[in-house]
């Protein structure tokens, strides 16, 4: 599942210092659970994203362990504190070893 994986993240562009902001993340991924069978009755092997992390200027915000019970196109919504201007980095870890990441800048006014 190295093709067609596209992370999308919604972070406000500006915030006040110490303000709590809401972050929404979505990544397109089929999240094959390893429970389904194809037309011939063979089990389709598991292929999921097994870990997601969000960091701000090197400090961790949230670290999620995903199991096959997470839906297709994993979505997460959570809240973070922004002490200063900087950059959020979001990282997804695939079962097949691929790592997808994206980052968003935020300015504290």
């Amino acid at each position: 599942m190295a093709s067609g994986v596209k992370p999308r993240v919604k972070v406000p562009k500006t915030a006040a210092a110490g303000e709590t902001i809401t972050i929404k993340t979505l990544i397109s991924h089929k999240m094959e659970s390893g429970q389904r069978k194809d037309d011939d009755g063979n089990i389709i092997p598991r292929s999921i994203i097994n870990r997601f992390t969000a960091d701000f200027n090197g400090q961790n915000v949230i670290d999620v362990t995903l199991e096959p019970a997470i839906s297709t196109n994993p979505f997460f919504e959570f809240e973070a504190v922004v002490p200063e201007s900087g950059e959020f980095t979001f990282t997804w870890y695939d079962d097949d070893g691929d790592v997808y990441d994206t980052s968003k800048k935020i300015t504290v006014s």
Binding site: F56, V61, I62, D63, E67
Partner: peptide
Amino acid sequence: VATFNFGPLSA
């Protein structure tokens, strides 16, 4: 299903 670990900047 999932495990959420909260870091120091989690609000």
